[in-house]
Design a protein around this nucleic acid. Structure first.
Lengths: 116, 116
DNA sequence: GATATACTGAACCATCTGGTTCAGTATTTA
DNA sequence: TAAATACTGAACCAGATGGTTCAGTATATC
């Protein structure tokens, strides 16, 4: 696996591993919000929320733009494709393993019948 | 969102945020392995790998069983359904927002034509 | 121009994380 | 029974994380 992809997945999953940050993503899914609005909503200092937004921005999930003194946060351009793809590949691995197990069981059943 | 689900997602995404652990899952997708085998493969001490396996086990991705002196690790029963579901809901939020944006643009275009 | 608002950055803090070493215990194997 | 193997647990370490406060700067508003 290429290092580039690896570290991006690292950043993505790490960003998603915090409930507050997942909440922020959900909130931004409904409407854009300023740092202050997000900080209020999640009962946190402005500085604390700014850090969370920074993490989400670094992971590519959020983009921000400052107009006047207000910085507005928007759901970013990345759409979790890589993360969904990784999870899907894992699911396929899993499926393959247990399909194989199914075949073994199937096989045993067939033999049982033949042996009868 | 219920706390139970929240903390499980925390554990899941945190478990997936490390390249070594994702590697271990891929490896276990191919075949079961002992802690020693995994430690060798990922150039790490036995103790270090045991911690990683512990994290994966706690997140429900891996189960282990000790027979004699060997602990064998197996891909666990959970299949990332919750994680996939969360990501999917986020993708839908995203889609909804940008569909709305599309409609606005569409609308503007229509008006332009009428105004001609 | 003075005051309030919105953010920014540095510094601090406790706790978690990813790794190690070292000193066990339990189980094979010779 | 002695030696090797496989794991376990405690203790340690450096660095990241999730939060805070405090002291700014820049912008809006009265």
């Amino acid at each position: 696996m290429v290092q580039y992809i690896t570290t991006r997945l690292d950043a993505s999953f790490a960003a998603l591993s915090d409930a507050t940050r997942r909440g922020v993503l959900e909130q931004l899914g409904r409407s854009d919000a300023s740092i202050t609005e997000l900080a209020d909503r999640f009962h946190m200092t402005l500085t604390g929320m700014k850090k969370h937004v920074g993490v989400l921005e670094h992971a590519g999930f959020v983009t921000t733009q400052k107009v006047g003194r207000v910085r507005t946060c928007t759901l970013g351009l990345r759409r979790l494709e890589d993360e969904a793809a990784w999870i899907e590949s894992y699911r396929q691995l899993w499926a393959a393993r247990f399909d194989a197990l199914d075949r073994v069981v199937e096989d045993l059943k067939r033999r049982e019948k033949i042996d009868d």
